[in-house]
Computed example of a mutant assay.
Amino acid sequence: MSPNSYPPRIICFMCNWAFCEEEMRIPYNVDVIRIMCVGRIDPVLVLEAFSRGAEGVMLVGCKPPDCHFVDGNLHAKRAVKMLKKLLALVGLEPERLKLLLVAPLEEKDFNYYAKEFSEEVWKLRSSPLSKEEIMANLTAAKNAASAFRLRVLLGREEELTEFMNAYGEKIPEEEFDALLDDVVKAEFIRYKIHYLTRIKPRSVKELAQILGLKPSIVLRHITNMRRKGMIALDRVEGYTPLYKALEVR
């Protein structure tokens, strides 16, 4: 991201009931966007903030049990967990995203927390990736965050980890986190392949080199993507198939 010569640009999505707006002091490097509930924000908007130049993003909501929507803060925690995994795949430090849950009568004002987070982001070193690669990865991450499979899995976390199924079983949190890791990574890779093959047709070998993966793994993802109508065979050069992305609806 940017060099550490000036305060980083911070975008803050804030619950409508967190902090009194009339009494808030906002640092000049922080932009605050009021929303009805931090648990209702689309994860894609958080990634879009990074795409548009934010160096850090804060989500500010209400501490349990003060959420006006009962469990919005719990939804926010799940979304942030998934988003941090995606940021790591993008090549950005997960610490650039922070969830802050505050009480109705918070002792410290917003200015304190905003400056504290700004300092944390300021200390992070710049990404070794180029701006173009970061933007490409963010595009893949936004599409992955929109994926139906990932959204359903997040929405069922409480059901899967806290309540027993018909067989009297429930998934331990460690197993669910491992499953979430696998799904996040798989969706990110598939949408990165989609992004790369949208630019021009590419072979499995070329994609494997760009992604740093084994060709067999890339081929497995392409097979899955072909079944879903995300990619198709464009042509064969010699003995090498080249694949081209299809429009995803």
Rank of each mutant, 00 (worst) to 15 (best):
Glu162Asp: 04
Asn73Met: 02
Glu23Phe: 13
Leu89Ala: 04
Cys20Ser: 13
Val204Lys: 01
Val236Gly: 02
Ala136Phe: 02
Thr223His: 07
Glu162Ser: 14
Leu138Tyr: 01
Phe163Lys: 11
Lys85Met: 13
Val102Cys: 06
Glu119Lys: 12
His194Ala: 10
Ser127Trp: 06
Ile26Glu: 02
Ser130Ala: 13
Val183Gln: 12
Ala18Asp: 07
Leu87His: 07
Asn165Arg: 03
Val60Gln: 03
Phe13Gln: 06
Ala76Phe: 04
Ala147Asn: 09
Ser118Ala: 11
Glu237Ile: 14
Phe110Trp: 15
Leu219Gln: 14
Glu206Lys: 11
Ala136Lys: 14
Tyr113Val: 04
Ala49Arg: 05
Val38Ile: 12
Ile189Cys: 03
Val152Ile: 15
Ala208His: 08
Ser5Asp: 15
Arg198Pro: 00
Ile189Ala: 01
Ser2Arg: 14
Glu119Val: 04
Gly238Trp: 10
Tyr195Phe: 11
Glu158Gln: 12
Glu157Thr: 01
Pro43His: 09
Leu154Met: 12
Val70Ser: 09
Leu160Met: 15
Arg52Lys: 12
Ile35Cys: 07
Leu153Gln: 10
Met230Arg: 12
Glu93Thr: 11
Ile11Phe: 11
Ile33Met: 13
Ala147Arg: 05
Gly91Pro: 07
Leu196Val: 09
Lys185Cys: 07
Ala136Asn: 14
Glu162Arg: 15
Thr223Trp: 02
Leu213Pro: 00
Leu138Phe: 10
Ser146Ala: 15
Glu206Thr: 10
Glu55Ile: 11
Val70Glu: 10
Asp31Trp: 01
Ser118Tyr: 01
Lys63Tyr: 08
Ser127Ile: 05
Tyr167Gln: 14
Val236Pro: 03
Asp234Cys: 02
Glu120Tyr: 00
